[in-house]
């Protein structure tokens, strides 16, 4: 008999993969966004399953609450309800599926053949305060520099978005 945890894992994996496949397969763009969202939530569930609660919460906040809403908004602004996307030409579908399957096969061959080192026994403390201390530490295992670089990147992205989205005055060419 399977343990409850195992059943939950398989359910989450199925949710993630099936909805991801449907997200790239469906021809209705809004449904595609919703399937993508459920796939992202499935991944957050997998993080929860691995006891990485902080990563799961960040995933839900940023992806489900931010990026998915952004994508849905852009769908609202650029598509008409009821329109289906055109089916891609058969040749391209076959070529893409072939490439994806081939790559998948190669990666899986490598994965099965490669022995991964056995884990060190002690699990490190993953509470939020420990994460915060590591995040702002400047020593060998600190992440202060990437943290600052990411914050700069976010600032640059914000300015870039404002500049792109700013409406040019209609009377100017």
């Amino acid at each position: 008999m399977m343990k409850g945890e195992t059943i939950v894992f398989y359910l989450l994996a199925a949710l993630t993969l099936v909805s991801a496949a449907m997200a790239v397969g469906t021809r209705r763009i809004f449904r595609s966004a919703v399937y993508l969202l459920s796939s992202l939530i499935g991944i957050a569930g997998l993080y929860f399953w691995m006891r990485f609660e902080f990563a799961a919460a960040v995933q839900i906040v940023v992806y489900a609450g931010g990026i998915a809403v952004l994508i849905i908004f852009s769908v609202f602004l650029t598509q008409r309800a009821g329109d289906d996307m055109p089916t891609p030409p058969m040749l391209r579908t076959i070529a893409a599926a072939g490439a994806a399957l081939l790559g998948m096969g190669l990666v899986m061959l490598q994965l099965v053949a490669h022995p991964f080192p056995t884990p060190a026994v002690a699990e490190v403390d993953r509470s939020v305060s420990a994460i915060g201390r590591r995040m702002l530490a400047t020593g060998d295992d600190g992440f202060a520099l990437p943290f600052e670089v990411v914050s700069l990147l976010l600032l640059a992205a914000m300015i870039g978005c404002i500049v792109i989205a700013m409406r040019t005055k209609p009377n100017q060419p």
Binding site: A20, V24, M85, M104
Partner: peptide, 16 residues
């Protein structure tokens, strides 16, 4: 799961 997601994404990127 990671590899499957990666190649599902690649497939979508190529067909759409």
């Amino acid at each position: 799961i990671g590899a499957a997601l990666f190649f599902i994404g690649i497939y979508g990127f190529l067909t759409r």
